[in-house]
Design a protein around this nucleic acid. Structure first.
Lengths: 148, 148
DNA sequence: CTCCGTGCAAATAGTTTGCACTTAC
DNA sequence: GTAAGTGCAAACTATTTGCACGGAG
């Protein structure tokens, strides 16, 4: 955890930004809730527990900054709220989402299933892929069980 | 085109809704711009050309209704604007998006590449897929050419 | 001293809602 | 006549911005 903060600090500094206490608190919240897909408001409330004087605008600005640096990914699941996901070490994003339409849970699949498709895209469509996003909507295994 | 409007009319009526002139004008705009991914505001401006007395709220309400009936799909590409896409005849949604990060164009691939993955999801993850969404971000073939 | 970063409040953008009026059956 | 649908304006929500202040080098 400390190592990851250190790395993010260096990424910021290499672009001329500082890891201020507010930014660090925000990053820590993201690290501690890596499974979840927090909204800016979620992050704000969690950061407030540690650093009550922080402002919502700062959280937005920090998330925006981290998003520009590809430290987090900004994402939108269709409920008018942006959600933020820490990217992994090489700042790529290769996981897929399983969104349960019944309970709203968002699970992740950490494998990348799309590499063959991306190759096909470049060959057949001359589209150079930089990133992708794959979400499945359906009923998760927990709700499947409950329904029986 | 008329046949498709007729079909949508029946879908509405089967749920107790009417195809009012405003709703019809909205559907026509969607049909005429099926390639594009129009925002509510886009639809509003296009509808206004034919039916200047229509209100923006009505367009929103119509799109919401059509979305509930799975006639259109409401979608979000990350630029804080909801976009609406007509679904195809059986109201399923099996196409993928190629989003160009340079010129902003959104192209579509009409094939469904994911059936094998969905089968795997149900078997390995016990996740029952209802729908999916696959977007690729990258450089489109037009921009690729221009850059040379 | 200078500049970056911050908190607060005000502004903005997209969307939704309340309400009185209209329209189709 | 009743209920669904509409236009308008006001409300609301998420996010952004302007600005004066605070702190590190």
């Amino acid at each position: 955890m400390e190592a990851r903060i250190e790395k993010i600090k260096q990424q910021l500094q290499s672009q001329g930004y500082k890891l201020t206490p507010q930014r660090e608190a925000t990053v820590r919240v993201l690290l501690e809730n890596e499974e979840d897909h927090l909204s800016a408001e979620d992050v704000y409330m969690l950061v407030k527990e540690k650093a009550p004087e922080i402002g919502l605008a700062t959280v937005y600005r920090t998330l925006e900054l981290l998003s520009d640096l590809h430290v987090v990914e900004k994402m939108n699941f269709g409920d008018g709220v942006a959600r933020y996901d820490l990217r992994n070490d090489n700042n790529t994003h290769h996981h897929h989402h399983l969104i349960c339409v019944q309970c709203g849970a968002v699970d992740e699949i950490m494998e990348d299933w799309l590499t063959p498709l991306e190759e096909r895209l470049e060959k057949e469509f001359h589209f150079k892929v930089i990133d992708h996003r794959l979400d499945f909507q359906g009923i998760c295994h927990r709700c499947n069980k409950k329904d029986k």
